[in-house]
Design a protein around this nucleic acid. Structure first.
Lengths: 145, 145
DNA sequence: CTCAGTGCAAAGGATTTGCATGCCG
DNA sequence: CGGCATGCAAATCCTTTGCACTGAG
C-alpha cells in the first residue's frame, strides 16, 4: 500500500467516524509512516516540533477510535502508536530491553499460517474468540548489543 | 514444579539478591500462584486484604528485580504481574478486549519449536539478540462472549 | 457564522517515595 | 541492637480535561 493509498484510506476512515482530516492529523499519520516501528508521544513531538503534546494525545485517541492507529504498550511506561494493521503489513516487534526501542519485523507466510492454526486450536479449548494475535521478541537491539 | 519447589526457588532468588523472604512477599507469591493468569495490583489487594497497596507495589518491584516475577502490560492501563517463566511453564495469554482479563494457555512443543526457529532467523537479520518471546491472543473471552 | 479542532495550563490517576515505626536476622 | 521492611500520606509523571481561541466548511 503506497503512502497515497494510506492517506486515502485514512481520510475515508475519518469520514466514516465523522471526523475531519486536519493538518495536525495528517502530520501525525506522516510521522507514524516515517518511523520504522511504533512511536511514543515523546518521539512524535520530537519528530514534529509543531505538534503540541495535548494535540498529539487527543488526535491519537481520535485516530485510534477511527481505526487508523493502534495503541500498544511494551515494557516501559510509555504508550506507543502505529498505523493500524490493515494500513500496513502484518508484522511483529523487536523490543530492546536496554533502550526500549521497538522495531518492526515479519515472519514468512508459511510460519504465520501454521501459527494461526495452532493458536486457533488453543483458543477454541477456552471458548475464546480470536480477533488478533500479537508476537514480540524481547532482547538486545543492534545499537545496544 | 510444585508450590513447595517454587517457594524454595523464590527463597533462593531473593537470597541471591540480598533480599529477605518476608511474610508480605510470601503472600504475594501465593496470590500470584493462585491466579490462572497475571494479576493486577488491584486484584492482588482484593485477593489478600492484609496487603497495603504501597507494600504490594514495592515488593513486586523487589521480586521483579530478583527475577521472581514479571511485569506485563496488556491493553488497559493496569500493569499485571505473574511468576517468572522459569518458575512456571512457558505459556501465552488470552487477553479479553471486553473485560481486560488475562488467562494463560500453552502451545504444543512442536509449534513452539518451529516458531522459535523462525523467530531466531528473523532476529538475526536485525542483529537482535533474542532473550524471550511473547505471544498473546486478543479477542473475546468465554465470559464476555 | 458555527462548531469541531487547537493549545495552554490545570487536573486526574496509577505508581513512587519520604519518613517514622516495627520487626527480622 | 542495626538495618531492612512496612504503611501512611504526600509527591511524581504520564495522560486527560476545562476553557477560551482559531479555522474549516
Amino acid at each position: 500500500m503506497t503512502d497515497h493509498d494510506v492517506d486515502d484510506e485514512v481520510a475515508d476512515l475519518l469520514r466514516q467516524a465523522d471526523q475531519r482530516y486536519t493538518s495536525s492529523r495528517r502530520r501525525l499519520v506522516a510521522a507514524l509512516q516515517a518511523g520504522d516501528g511504533p512511536l511514543t508521544i515523546t518521539q512524535i513531538v520530537a519528530a514534529d516540533g509543531s505538534l503540541p503534546q495535548s494535540t498529539v494525545y487527543r488526535n491519537l485517541t481520535v485516530l485510534e477510535d477511527a481505526g487508523v492507529v493502534t495503541r500498544i504498550v511494551t515494557t516501559d511506561e510509555f504508550a506507543r502508536y502505529e498505523l493500524a494493521e490493515h494500513l500496513t503489513e502484518h508484522h511483529h516487534h523487536l523490543i530492546c530491553s536496554s533502550c526500549g526501542d521497538v522495531t518492526d519485523f515479519s515472519l514468512d507466510t508459511r510460519t504465520e499460517n501454521s501459527l494461526d492454526r495452532a493458536l486457533g486450536r488453543a483458543a477454541e479449548r477456552f471458548g475464546f474468540q480470536v480477533e488478533a494475535h500479537r508476537l514480540d521478541l524481547l532482547g538486545i537491539c543492534a545499537m545496544c548489543g
